[in-house]
Design a binder for these strands. Structure first.
Length: 480
RNA sequence: CGGGGUGUAGCGCAGCCUGGUUAGCGCGCCUGCCUUGGGAGCAGGAGGUCCCGAGUUCGAAUCUCGGCACCCCGACCA
């Protein structure tokens, strides 16, 4: 008899509560004593570490190196770039005292590191021979948000920020474009999250950027989540921090810049993309544990035999290159463990009991579909890789299908309002490019232009709001 | 900052209106027995500044006043 203990709210009943229940019950994070802050627990941090490993490898492949810049930024740095300070100062934490004395100059806790990094780039860049400079840092940042949500928006969060300096507009532009595609590849290949890649409208771009590229994902409630951004900063920060170089003709030029980042928000994106009412679902490439083996036994003698088989299998699976655990605790019954590992999102579960052992088999259950199959014990390790691949692909395909099914092309304003306000999905409509039309949609529906997709074909059309000329459709949606 | 709500065991709550034995229930936790193929059962046990402060009273979780914290909804954002 299948008996489900209702530990988590169903998605159907209350999607946000479901999300919170998953985070807490899968032990990914917990609320910290400080408002808006969270503790990332080992289960959650392990996923972040897997993300870091994959991304860091991709950054190294594209020629980037890691460095670390200070947490504290002098107030005078923050105010140097006009748009930047306007965008960030309302959400900054500021240190006014240190060592028991009031500071001569206040220190901002970094909300992002452009300013302090460019103050250093000024020292390090003199010639075109010093370029490009391709640095990345893994760090924490603080943004004093009004409303916070575990992983999606917390006062302090972990991220990676790339900051590059280039000779020409073309080089910097190519870098911004290259990195947004790295993020796309990471989202799809590792997270199994399909994304729409595009450009932000001016209203949505980063404070201080010339333009911003982004990847937008669709969560299971059909709302959008910005999963990564890449900014072409032009010469804005070079001018603010007077960073010039001598070019190939001997002239002094301002340096062209980019910055790009993804954060622990990705863990939230991962949860809301794949998990179900039983708990967390993690794609194998990011799963801290690939396989959990659950021995089933009554007597001590049975325990001995079954555990022998379980640990032998563990060795084989481990030797095949997968992360595997045996849970031989006897204070919990197998049924309890089944539910527990489904909550934790382990992709594959192998059950070995006396009956299996008698016929030399084991039972494998996959987390994504719940499907159980019986396999000869000798074949289990060999089949693990194929099953994990199948889960990884299955999750991506399922997410792609969901995205396609909730992406609506419309030329009617009423339909657009209907789609975004009833949270049916993304609306793809023509937009004339005017901030006024964009603001009208936002005021009336709370939905924003998520991005102007790269792969959207040019076509003559009229703005869904004002009827003015438009050459391309954009994505409207409510967002996290 | 506006509107609403909640503070009682690790978690979720009841008790408060109508003050009065030792503050209770479910889950979890500990010990033992028994069980183990989808969250078993029984017995025993540990665990409390009833958010804080002042007041009323013989007596306050309960009534009064003041404070604090957190949550939800709206205005800002990766």
């Amino acid at each position: 008899m299948r008996f489900i203990v209702a530990k988590i709210t169903t998605r159907d009943k209350d999607y946000s509560q479901w999300y919170i229940d998953i985070v807490l019950n899968a032990k990914l994070a917990d609320y910290a004593p400080v408002r808006g802050c969270m503790v990332i627990r080992p289960n959650g941090y392990a996923i972040w570490e897997k993300m870091q490993q994959a991304l860091d490898g991709m950054f190294k492949e594209t020629g980037h190196t890691n460095a670390y810049f200070p947490l504290f930024i002098p107030e005078s740095f923050m105010t140097k770039e006009a748009e930047h300070v306007e965008g960030f100062s309302p959400e900054c934490a500021v240190v006014t005292h240190g060592g028991g004395k009031e500071l001569d100059e206040k220190l901002y806790v970094r909300p992002t590191s452009e300013t302090i990094i460019w103050s250093m780039y000024k020292k390090w860049i003199q010639s075109y021979r010093d370029l490009p400079l391709l640095y990345n840092q893994w760090a924490n940042v603080v943004r004093w948000e009004m409303r916070t949500r575990l992983f999606l928006r917390t006062t302090e969060f972990l991220w990676q920020e790339g900051h590059t300096a280039h000779e020409t507009y073309e080089d910097a532009e190519a870098e911004a474009m290259r990195m947004i595609h790295v993020y796309q590849r990471f989202a799809e290949d590792y997270m199994a999250v399909p994304v729409i890649v595009g450009k932000k409208s001016d209203a949505e771009k980063f404070a201080g950027a010339v333009h911003t590229y982004c990847i937008e994902a669709m969560m299971q409630d059909n709302k959008a989540l910005q999963a990564g951004t890449s900014h072409y900063l032009g010469q804005n920060f070079a001018r603010a921090f007077d960073v010039t170089y001598q070019d190939r003709t001997g002239q002094q030029q301002f340096v062209y810049a980019t910055s790009w980042g993804v954060s622990t928000r990705l863990v939230g994106a991962l949860i809301m993309s794949h998990s179900d009412d039983q708990g967390l679902v993690v794609p194998p490439k990011l799963a801290p544990t690939h396989v959990v083996i659950i021995p089933i036994f009554r007597t001590d003698e049975e325990k001995q035999q079954v555990c022998d088989a379980a640990f032998t299998l563990k060795k084989e699976i481990s030797a095949a290159g997968f992360r595997v655990d045996v849970d031989d605790r006897d204070q919990y019954k197998p049924g309890w463990k089944f539910n527990e590992y489904e909550m934790l999102g382990v992709p594959l579960r192998i059950e070995i009991g006396p009956r299996d052992l008698a016929s030399g088999v084991c039972t494998i259950a996959r987390r994504d579909t719940g499907e159980k199959t019986t396999l000869p014990l000798t074949e289990a390790a060999g089949k693990t890789g194929g099953l994990l691949d199948s889960i990884q692909n299955g999750l991506l395909e399922k997410a792609k299908k969901r995205l396609q099914e909730h992406l609506f092309v419309t030329d009617s304003y009423d339909q657009l309002v209907d789609i975004v306000t009833k949270e049916k999905g993304f609306a793809k409509s023509h937009w004339c490019g005017s901030p006024v039309c964009e603001a009208k949609v936002k005021d009336q529906t709370k939905a924003t232009i998520r991005c102007i997709p790269f792969d959207e074909p040019e076509e003559a059309g009229s703005c869904v709001v004002c009827g003015g000329a438009s050459s391309k459709r954009v994505i409207f949606s409510k967002a996290y």
